[in-house]
Design a binder for these strands. Structure first.
Length: 215
DNA sequence: GCGACAG
DNA sequence: ATCTTGTCGC
């Protein structure tokens, strides 16, 4: 079953929506300091049942402030470039259950480092009107810029810097944050290779999924 | 036409 | 993403 053969006209419409919404993405810092960041991830199998997990972490000492999980329904297939339509509802749903507030959201997936500048992280950020950061293991678009000045390398998209490579992860602006601050936050929250908000939410989602769904 | 393609 | 045990290596 090839997910790539989703009705072409639907893809065109959704692609157009992404292109239009990408214009609304804010790529600079508006808020003050980011003290608390929440990581979110979704775990699922081949069916429509999935588990979304969120973990709020204090940036200062990387302690966990709150955790939340939620069983959700996934109805949209995985199509590269359209991950937002598959996972954003689940992500937003688990975030809405949190009691504590947070200053930024770290998401598994790209922000503006996307074919139409509107990845999952941007979609969630725009919808919730919150600062979001995209963190992904692999590129879907873009080229690594050679001749790096720091230890990190930049990722070029349409001849402009749209992301950065940090500890093997591609970081990009989701919404309402600068790339510089996004990169700093990823570094600040990294003890090991993977940023704490990302790995904590991933593990929580996976374990909860196995517990309540896979039984 | 061929290959690539976040999770 | 997920299906899956042992196993190679720092």
């Amino acid at each position: 079953m090839n997910e790539f053969i989703y009705p072409y006209d639907i893809n065109l419409n959704l692609a157009h929506i992404q292109t239009k919404l990408a214009e609304k993405v804010i790529k600079k810092d508006l808020s003050s300091n980011i003290d608390k960041v929440v990581g979110v991830d979704v775990s699922f199998s081949r069916d429509e049942r999935a588990v979304a997990a969120a973990v709020i972490i204090q940036v200062k000492n990387l302690t966990i402030i709150e955790e939340s999980t939620k069983e959700v329904e996934i109805s949209f297939p995985y199509i590269p470039g359209f991950l937002g339509f598959r996972e954003s509802d689940a992500v937003i749903s688990v975030l809405n259950d949190l009691k504590h507030d947070y200053d930024a959201i770290m998401i598994n997936g790209h922000g503006i480092l996307h074919p139409r500048g509107f990845g999952l992280a941007s979609q969630v950020g725009l919808f919730l009107d919150k600062p979001t950061i995209g963190v992904a293991k692999r590129l879907i678009v873009g080229n690594l810029k050679k001749g790096d000045e720091s230890s990190d390398r930049s990722v070029l998209l349409h001849n402009k810097i749209s992301g950065a490579l940090v500890n093997g992860y591609y970081v990009s602006v989701g919404h309402k944050i600068s790339l510089k601050k996004a990169v700093n936050l990823v570094k600040e929250t990294s003890i090991f290779k993977t940023p704490e908000p990302i790995i904590k939410s991933h593990i929580l989602a996976t374990q909860t999924y196995k517990k309540i769904i896979k039984q």
